[in-house]
Design a protein around this nucleic acid. Structure first.
Length: 271
DNA sequence: AACGCGCCCTGTCCGC
DNA sequence: TGCGGACAGGGCGCGT
């Protein structure tokens, strides 16, 4: 589900709502959501901790608890909601994190592809180091994109979604960025010229920034921390628009499958 | 090493 | 109306 803009929206919401709060009690309703430790250890590690800050790394929501980090990955259908006690028991509730002021940080996930884990800050720093460039970071330059892409024969759209290279771009924004850059998503990554790499670099950033502005894309499941939908779906240029005219050239938008995932593009103007 | 694929799980939608 | 199959925003582990 959520890609960088959706996770960023949730993180910004949470950064306004929960820093300074203390975790009173944790209830794990679906133990299969907890990564690496038992549900009991997970709850014990959180109870009594104070939330010092919230940040995003790739598609992960990271809570700074002092010595530890709580890391939440939403998978396809995960939601992280701040709700009053009365709303804390919906169907598909996965983990209830009760704050000492009475509010509940509720992890909700229909498909349960998401994961939560608590780990020492040092351990998280090591894993952070294995993730790729933040596409909105200053060190992600057109040259970096061109050099990294030059090492791979994978189709550029699939390449963009690999979190070891560039993080945060998922299936929706990969199609959207290829379209904005007018690049055929089937091209081998290493076939991009420096100019094409620069235009893809700009397209990735522009797409993600605009999607953040509109609080993300809700196709079906995505909700922000208040439970509201994102507004970017209406602005998608190709994703989920098979058969519609290309907004740039009027050609027909096609749907193909790459690596088992749907890709949408215009065969007329994406070269 | 790099890459492609199946799988995890539930709900929705579409065609028959 | 009912039913079976395809498909859905992610990421991991496997085999080649």
């Amino acid at each position: 589900m959520p890609e960088l803009p959706e996770v960023e929206t949730i993180v910004r919401d949470l950064a306004r709502l929960v820093p300074g709060a203390t975790i009173a009690r944790v209830e794990v309703l679906r133990p299969d959501l907890i990564e690496r430790t038992s549900a009991g250890d997970f709850a014990r590690a959180l109870e009594g901790a104070r939330i010092a800050g919230i940040s995003r790394r790739a598609k992960n929501i990271v809570f700074d608890l002092g010595p530890d980090r709580l890391v939440v990955n939403l998978g396809m259908t995960g939601r992280l909601l701040v709700v009053p006690e009365a709303d804390a028991d919906p169907p598909h509730a996965g983990v209830r994190i009760r704050l000492s002021d009475g509010r509940v940080l509720l992890y909700h996930d229909v498909r349960r592809f998401g994961r939560l884990e608590v780990c020492p800050a040092g351990e998280w720093a090591r894993r952070d180091g294995e993730l790729g460039y933040e596409p909105l970071g200053a060190d992600f330059t057109p040259r970096v994109l061109h050099e990294l892409a030059g090492r791979s024969r994978v189709a550029i759209k699939t390449w963009m979604m690999d979190q070891r290279r560039v993080v945060g771009v998922g299936n929706i924004y990969a199609s959207e960025a290829c379209h904005r850059a007018a690049i055929d998503p089937r091209r081998p990554a290493r076939s991009l010229t420096p100019d094409e790499a620069a235009s893809l670099h700009a397209a990735i950033r522009d797409t993600l920034l605009e999607a953040i502005e509109f609080r993300g894309t809700t196709l079906l499941d995505y909700r922000d921390a208040s439970g509201d939908e994102g507004g970017f779906a209406a602005r998608l240029r190709v994703y989920d628009r098979e058969g519609e005219p290309c907004p740039r050239c009027g050609g027909e938008i096609e749907r193909i499958v790459q690596g088992g995932r749907a890709t949408f593009f215009c065969g007329d103007c994406q070269r």
